[in-house]
Amino acid sequence: MTNETFHELLATHRDRVFTQALFSLRERRDAEDVTQEAFLRLWRQGDHLPADRVAPWLAHVTRNLCIDQTRRRSAARRHLGVADADAVDGLVAAAGGPDDPFAGLDLDDRQRRLLDALQTLPAETRTVMLMHYGDGTKLADIADAMGKSLAAVKVQVHRARQRLRLVLGTADGVSEQRGSA
């Protein structure tokens, strides 16, 4: 892969990768680190990736990096111990709470509830939902990138949809739109 080709891929996909990491981790600094690592892996992948597979490949790698990051966070909390971890949380809260990871995104209440509901899904399922619904990535491409069967991904999406409906309840924006489309 030439330097110029990579520059183009970065310009095309960086916001999407950062958004996926941000929605998944809800922490800007972690999302920045994951974005950087995902693109460095893309660079080191060289020419082995067809152009039309870049987006699902990036989404898959980003999802794995987010899982790793979440595990590191959990391990850090375990290392701190419950009392210390709670003390840190207390200090953060006393300082005005953690920065809003979605600051500047202009989300309405319905969208914030939707993001909260997405957070209840397993990381892989959340990635699949954001890729399929948010980016319009074909289920076949998602299945290919994740090494799963198409049927398995279809069932995964179907169950996630049911789970979101359960979490959001009847007053959410999704259900409110029933019959309006």
């Binding site: 929605f23 999302a31 500047g104 939707l114």
Partner: peptide
Amino acid sequence: ALGDLPTAT
């Protein structure tokens, strides 16, 4: 709804 979520920069 998911398609309308804004993209972060």
